[in-house]
Design a protein around this nucleic acid. Sequence first.
DNA 1: CATGAATGAGCCTTCATTCAT
DNA 2: TATGAATGAAGGCTCATTCAT
Lengths: 219, 219, 219, 219
Amino acid sequence: MLKSRKSPRVRIVKRMPPEQRKQQIMDCARKLFAAGGYYQTQISDIQKASNVARGTVYQYFKSKDDLFTEILEDLFIKWKEALADTPDPESEEYKSGLKFFTYKIKRSFEFFADNPDYCSILLKIGLGLGENFDTLISRFDHQIVELAKKYLTVGIKLGRVHPDTDVELAANMIGGAFTRMAYFYGVTKKDKDSINIDLLSETFVKTLSYGFFIEKDVK
Amino acid sequence: MLKSRKSPRVRIVKRMPPEQRKQQIMDCARKLFAAGGYYQTQISDIQKASNVARGTVYQYFKSKDDLFTEILEDLFIKWKEALADTPDPESEEYKSGLKFFTYKIKRSFEFFADNPDYCSILLKIGLGLGENFDTLISRFDHQIVELAKKYLTVGIKLGRVHPDTDVELAANMIGGAFTRMAYFYGVTKKDKDSINIDLLSETFVKTLSYGFFIEKDVK
Amino acid sequence: MLKSRKSPRVRIVKRMPPEQRKQQIMDCARKLFAAGGYYQTQISDIQKASNVARGTVYQYFKSKDDLFTEILEDLFIKWKEALADTPDPESEEYKSGLKFFTYKIKRSFEFFADNPDYCSILLKIGLGLGENFDTLISRFDHQIVELAKKYLTVGIKLGRVHPDTDVELAANMIGGAFTRMAYFYGVTKKDKDSINIDLLSETFVKTLSYGFFIEKDVK
Amino acid sequence: MLKSRKSPRVRIVKRMPPEQRKQQIMDCARKLFAAGGYYQTQISDIQKASNVARGTVYQYFKSKDDLFTEILEDLFIKWKEALADTPDPESEEYKSGLKFFTYKIKRSFEFFADNPDYCSILLKIGLGLGENFDTLISRFDHQIVELAKKYLTVGIKLGRVHPDTDVELAANMIGGAFTRMAYFYGVTKKDKDSINIDLLSETFVKTLSYGFFIEKDVK
DNA sequence: CATGAATGAGCCTTCATTCAT
DNA sequence: TATGAATGAAGGCTCATTCAT
C-alpha cells in the first residue's frame, strides 16, 4: 500500500543567497498586496511573480500571514528611520518649532512618495484586516499623531498655540489630513514629478497653523 | 444502522414581508461586515445572525458581492440625504459661509455618529477591496471634498480665503481631517455621550479656517 | 479585482437524512482506515467511496482527525455494550468464575469477529498514531485487562488461583493473548466459518487457567 | 536592497567514515520513528537530529521508505542473533524443554529491554503501515510463534503437553502474551531496574505451562 | 417562499526529493 | 562527499453557491 511519494520533477531555475531570495519574495509580495489587497492576493500569485516554486515561499515565510506581517515590520522599521531623521542641531530648522515640524512632515511625505506600496498598504489595504494586523498597522499612525501632539504642546508652551486647544483632537485632525495628503500624492497621483514636496509640506504645515482665512477672527 | 426515515422537514413559521426580511438580513450583514471586514465575514455568519436558512440569503441577494454592494448603495443614499439637509434659507447659518459649512460638517458628523457601522465600512472595511467597490466607496468621500472645495471657492470669491490657495489640495486636507474625526468619534470612542458634536464641528471648522496659532505671521 | 467566486457547477446526486449520511460516511471511512491505515487513507478516498462531494465530508466532520475520533468513539460504545452483556444471573455461567469469564471472553471474540474493521483499527491501525489517539485506543485494551484482573482476583479469593500471582502481569499476559487471538481470527483468517468461537473461548480460558501441561509440577 | 554577494559556502568540517555516518543517521531515525511513528517523523527531523544537511540523508538512503526498511532489516538481524543464542549443550537449560524455552524467552525479553526502540517499532509503529512493511514486521513475530510451536510439539512428543492441543492456536496465544509483556516491560515501564527479567521469564513460561489455577481440573 | 444538504473550485500548506554548488 | 535552496505533487480544508424538497 504505502504510496511512496512521487518524486517531483525538479527544475531549479537559479540559486540565490537566502537573504536575497527572501527580499525578492517580499518585494513581489508587497507590490501585489499593495495593488490587490491581502485576500485577493494569493500565494500562487506571489510565487509566480517571484518566479519561484510554491514551496519556496514557504521556505522563507511560515504562512501568508507571516509574510504580510514581515512586510509590515519591515515597513515600520523604515518608517521609523525616516521619522528619526532630524535636522542639523545648528540649523534654523532645528530651532523653530514650525520649521522643525515642517521638516519632519516633509520627510514623511518623501517616505511615502518613495514607497507608494507601503503607503497603499498602510492607508488602504491594511485597514480592514482585523485584529491580527490592527496593532501593526496603527503603530505607524500613532507616530504621526504623536509628532503632531508634540508640535502643538510645544506651541502652547511657547504661547503661540491657543492654550485651550484640545491637543488630542487637533493632533488627530493633523494626522488625518497628513494621511490623506500622503495617499493622494503617494498613490493616487500619476505624474509625481509635478509635485513639489517642499512646497507641499510647507503649505500643509502653514495651512494648519494659520488656517485658510486671511484675517484672524475671534476664535 | 440507521433506518431511512423520511427527514422531517422543519417548517419555520416566521413568515415576513419580503422587504422586511431583506432589510433584516442587510442590517445583520452590515453589522458583521463593519465589525469583521468583508472577507472575514461569511455568508453563514450572516445567515446565522439573521436567523434564516442558508439559502434564504440568496433569495434576496444574488451573491455576497451583491449584498455588500446593496449595503453600500443604501448607505450612500442615506449619506446623501444627510448632506442634502440644508439650513433654513432665512437663518444665519444659510448666509454665512463659515456657519453654512459648519452646519454641513455637523450633519456629517452626526450621520457617522448615528451610523457607526457605515462609518467603519466606509473608512476601514471598504478600502482594500479592489476596484469593484472602490468607486462605490469613494463616492462618499468625493462629496466631502466637493463640499470643502465649494466652501473654499466661495471664501476666495469673498476675499476671505487666500486667493492663491490650492483648492484641490486644501479640500483633500479637510476631507482627510474630517474622515479621521468621524472615525475617531464614530467608531473608536466608547463613551459617545461625552462628545458634543456641536462643539466638535465648530472647533473643526474654526481650526481649519484660522489655524492653531494665535497671532498672524507672514504667510 | 475581487475575483467573485466561480459558481460551482452543482450536480447533487441524492438527498439523505443527515444522520444516515453521516453514518454512511463513517462506514466507508472505517473500512478504508481499517484496510489502509490512517495516513494512507485520504479524505478524497473516503469521499469517493461514499459517493459524495469532498465538502460533504466536512459538513459532518470537522476534520480527518475528528472523523477518525468519532469512529473510535463509536467503536468504544459498541465494545462496551458487547462487554456489558452478562449471563443470566440464574444460570451456571453466572455462578462459576471460570464460566463467567469464558462467557465474557466469548462475547469479546464475537464482537471482533463481527466487526473485523474495528479489530483492525484497534489492534493495528490505531497503534502508531501518537498521543492524540493513544488514549482512545488504549481504553479498549484496558477493559480486557481489567476483566482479567477481576477474574484472577476472585480466583485468589476463592483459593483457586495462586495467591502470590502477580495480577498485573498475569492480566497483561491474558490481554496480550486475547488480542492476538482476536486479531488472528477476526482479521487474518479468511474462512471464518471454520472457527468455532465457543470452542475458541473455552480453550482460551482453560489453557490459561490450567496451562498446557498435563501433570502438575512443583510451581 | 541586498547586494548579491557570493553566498559563503559553509563548509562543515566533520567528515566521517561513510559507514559510521550511515549508522549515526539510522540511530537517530530509529529513535524518532520509535517515538513518533513513521508518518509523524519527517526527514527533516531526522536530519536535524543527526546534525547533517538535508541532502546528506539521501546520500545514504534512497528514500524515507528505504531508510525505514533498512532499520527494519537491521533490527531483524539483531533479533535473530539474540534468538540464535542457545544454552551450553552440556547445561541443564539445554536438556529440559521447559528450561530451554525459558532460556529463549529470557533472551527475547532481554533483547527488547535493551532495545526499546525496536520494541516500539515492531509492536506499535510498524503495524499500520501497509503491505510494504507488513512482511518485514511480521517476520519477527513469526519467530516467536515458531519457537512456541516447537516447544509445544516437543512437549506433546514427550507426553507432557496435551496431545490434542491446537498447536497453531496455542502458539499464537503464547506469541500474543509474549509480545504484550515485551512491550509492557520494554516500553511502558519507566523504572526498568525494578524488573527482574529472570523472574519474568520464568513466571511467563510457568504460567503458560501450568496455568493460573492451583489444582488441575479435568481439561 | 424557505430550507439546508450537497457541491466543488480553489486556497493554503506540507514535505519527500532533487541537484547545482 | 556534503550542503541546503529549490521544487511541486498532493493533501487538508473552506466557503460561496445551488437546488431538490
